[in-house]
């Protein structure tokens, strides 16, 4: 049983009278010789790690060795100023929290990558809090997100070194948008539209981490990815169409990734990494992370 495109998953759902979450359970059972119970156990483990990583970033000291990240999540969470209410503020803080935990070599669920690991947990924890959604339903939302990831992995790439940050925070935002749309009762078609919106907003995003570290701009891009997911789901749920079908948008990310200069794909030679300040930080970082090439 192969799903190469989102449209194939939706066709399957229509034929079988299932939703995308259950289609993904079928996919996993058939391809991995596993059981429904084991799939949900695996999802539960992932959700727990996601929740813990949010919690850690909001409660523990998280200062990266480079000093680039320094307990930002807590500062956002406690900020008295709110641009669009407390929900957005908290969602942003949660994404940053996971980014900080990740940069400190903490435990995270890479959904779909470590660099973009803040988006799914921030969105899911926020959906639980704001919409009172049960954790069981959240597991189904994870399944819907996995459908996006599966098709993206097949037709584009999660690697910043291949698809730039489209492949990381872009795909994560699309997965999160699909989860939100699903949780708020969107149709399969609306779920696909939300994926299209999120990816179109990320099109061409370069991978240019300063000092080669997954900190800046990665962490704040996770925060923006959360906003992207909520905005994309909002439009899709209102019935707006993405015009370019989600599958074709995914294929476009592949084309754009291939066209992007290698300097803009995780090489540390372009974009923010190559700015005057970026270079200065890199020099400092290299001094801090002292050479440990040899054991003796």
């Amino acid at each position: 049983m192969e799903f190469n495109y989102l449209s194939e998953i939706v066709d399957y759902c229509r034929r079988e009278g299932k939703d995308i979450a259950q289609a993904m359970v079928d996919y996993e059972i058939r391809n991995k010789g596993t059981t429904r119970e084991r799939v949900y156990e695996g999802l539960k483990r992932i959700l727990i790690v996601m929740e813990e990583s949010v919690e850690q970033g909001l409660t523990q000291q998280v200062i990266t060795p480079s000093g680039m990240l320094n307990n930002w999540a807590k500062r956002i969470y406690q900020s008295p100023k709110e641009t669009l209410g407390v929900a957005l503020k908290k969602a942003v803080a949660r994404a940053v929290a996971v980014g900080e935990v990740n940069a400190c070599m903490g435990k995270i669920a890479a959904a779909p990558t470590a660099g973009s690991a803040g988006i799914m947990p921030a969105v899911l924890v926020t959906m639980i809090e704001e919409h009172g959604i049960s954790r069981q339903r959240i597991l189904d939302a994870l399944l819907v997100a996995s459908a996006v990831g599966l098709v993206f992995a097949k037709n584009s790439s999660f690697a910043g070194s291949e698809a730039g940050c489209m492949g990381e925070t872009g795909s994560a935002a699309a997965m999160a948008a699909a989860s939100i749309t699903y949780l708020l009762g969107g149709s399969d078609e609306q779920i696909l539209e939300s994926i299209g919106f999120a990816l179109k907003a990320s099109m061409g995003l370069v991978c240019d981490p300063v000092g080669g570290l997954v900190e800046e701009p990665c962490t704040t891009r996770n925060a923006v990815g959360v906003a992207n997911a909520f905005v994309s789901a909002q439009m899709a749920l209102a019935g707006i169409k993405s015009l370019i079908p989600a599958d074709e948008v995914i294929l476009a990310t592949k084309e754009v990734g291939d066209l992007m200069s290698p300097k803009l794909k995780e090489s540390g030679q372009g974009g923010l990494a190559n700015t005057k300040t970026g270079r200065e930080i890199q020099k400092k970082v290299f001094k801090i992370v002292k050479e440990e090439g040899r054991s003796s």
């Binding site: 996919y27 995270i108 990558t113 660099g115 990831g149 910043g160 900190e215």
Partner: peptide, 21 residues
């Protein structure tokens, strides 16, 4: 075919799925 649990994971020590995990 990839496992959906690998797409939503892996559960790993940061900071980079390609460079660390």
């Amino acid at each position: 075919p990839p496992s959906i649990l690998d797409i939503l994971g892996p559960i790993m020590i940061g900071p980079s799925s390609s460079h660390t995990a």
